Every structure is written in structure tokens, then in C-alpha cells.
Amino acid sequence: MWWTGYQDQPYSMGVIDHDRSPEGRVRMTLFRLAPAAYAWDILQFPYQGGELAGSGEAAWVDINGDERPELVAWLRASNDTLFDACKSCPFIIHEQTYTESRDGLQLHDMRVLPSPYATFTLFVRLLGEGNRAAAVRLLRDPARVTEAVTAAWGDRRRAKAWLLEYGEEERWPRWLEFLHHGVKGDQRYVVHFELKEGRWIISDWVTPHHTGGPAARDSVTAAPKRAGTPAGRSPAPKPATPRGKP
């Protein structure tokens, strides 16, 4: 509960709740205290302005220190149609910030939460758009963009051309393995990432020596129980020596 600054609606109270399912939606209800302080009125409620756009987590956070909290939500988002992933693999997260006005909470900002997976999907999408100038800014070695273009990484003639199979056995992995259903046939890549000047970039990629099992076992319909190294596979190779200056 917090002071609103509005004399006719002096206090607000917000409630966040979730569906029982882990993949259920996040909901928000906002109450305002009546002027005579005899009752709470419902200002926003689910399906009437209080519905957040997805499943995930949300919290009340006083971002600017004015003792009036904002609502921040981290919600699972749909990825580009070029990508598919195992159920236990990383996914794209939207960070949404809601600020309060007299009419209630309104969306103030929405952005993709930075992550290695988000960087790679953006890189592939930029290649598909023919925007090499923007794509090279996501690489430690800009010269390697030619290699990705030659391999038709951004080709959009096939949906779900990229399958994220697994990654480093960490909650926030720094390398990921993809299976690319390319125009020249299937090829796996182990892609490494690093944080540079506050943003994730692609530091290297290599083609692993193992052949792996059927890609379908790691798909959305047949996912492994954990996003670790599948049985019979060795850990990802270490990044090769950079081909150009960082």
C-alpha cells in the first residue's frame, strides 16, 4: 500500500497473482482507497486492464525512489519463427515496466532482457534482413559475418531452421549448441558469448566433432529433462583463437 498523491484517491494497493501452472499467466489487481477511507475500490483487474502479457514473474519496485512503486514484470516471449528450442533450454524474456497514473498502471517500457540466446536470435534476424552493418556489431570478430552469410544463417525459406538443443550446465549459460537446418544440409554449431561494454556479443563459434542423436529428441515435443550435455556427447569445445582483433 502506498500514498498516491491524489486527494480523492489517497492510497493504492496492488496484488500480483499467478495461475497454478508454471506456465500460467501473471495477473495484477489495483485497488484505490475511497476518499472517506471507508472502502477499497477496484480500479484495474484481470481482463479489464490488469492482464500482463504472458507467463513469468512480477514484482513491485520503487525504481526512482519516490515511495510510489512501479510494477516490473519478466515475461516469457515468443521467439522469431526461425527458432525452436528444447523445453528446458533458455528462452526470450520481455522486461516490462508499468508506472502509475490517476487512471491506473500503464505500460511505460518494454525491452528484451539481454542474454546470449537473445543476442544470437537478433544476429540471425539481422542477417535475414540484409543488415550486415548492425549484425557485425554483435561479433567480437566482425570479419566472421561473411562466414555466417555464406552459410545462409539468415535464410527464411524454412520455419524453425534453427534448433537450440542444449547449453552450458549453468542457470545462465554462456555457450549454446544449435542445429541449423540450412540450405546446404544440417550443421551443428557451438556458439560462445561474452559480455562487452554491458551487452552480450558472439565471441566465437565452432562446429563440434560429435554427430549427436536425432534432433527431434531435443525439440519442443521431445525435450530432455535438463539443458545439459546429452548422453554420449562431450562438453562443448573451447573457443578457437580469435581471427581478428577484439
Rank of each mutant, 00 (worst) to 15 (best):
A222P: 06
D218P: 00
V112I: 15
R171I: 06
D80R: 04
A58S: 11
R140I: 05
L163F: 06
K238C: 00
R157N: 13
N79H: 06
T207M: 08
L138M: 12
P239Y: 09
Q44C: 11
R171Q: 07
P173A: 03
D218L: 05
G228D: 13
D186T: 03
T211Q: 15
P246V: 03
L164R: 04
K225R: 08
S21T: 08
R171H: 02
A134W: 13
R199Q: 13
V26H: 11
T207H: 10
E67I: 00
F178S: 01
P10H: 07
V15K: 03
S115F: 07
L71Q: 04
V206C: 05
Q44W: 15
D218I: 00
F91K: 06
Y47V: 10
S21L: 14
K184C: 00
P90E: 08
A148C: 11
D17G: 04
G54C: 05
H181G: 01
P142C: 10
I93C: 02
Y11P: 00
D66Q: 10
H209D: 15
P224N: 08
W2T: 08
R102P: 00
S101K: 10
Q44N: 08
K225N: 05
Q44H: 11
P224W: 07
K160Y: 12
Y11D: 11
L113S: 05
D17R: 07
S55H: 12
T146C: 03
P224G: 09
R243K: 07
D103K: 03
T211K: 14
R171P: 04
G24M: 10
A58K: 12
V112E: 14
A216Q: 14
L71T: 01
P114Y: 05
F45W: 12
G65F: 10
L164F: 05
G167E: 09
R20W: 13
V136F: 07
P214E: 12
H94M: 02
T99Y: 06
E177S: 00
S101L: 01
R226W: 02
L122K: 15
S101Q: 09
F178H: 07
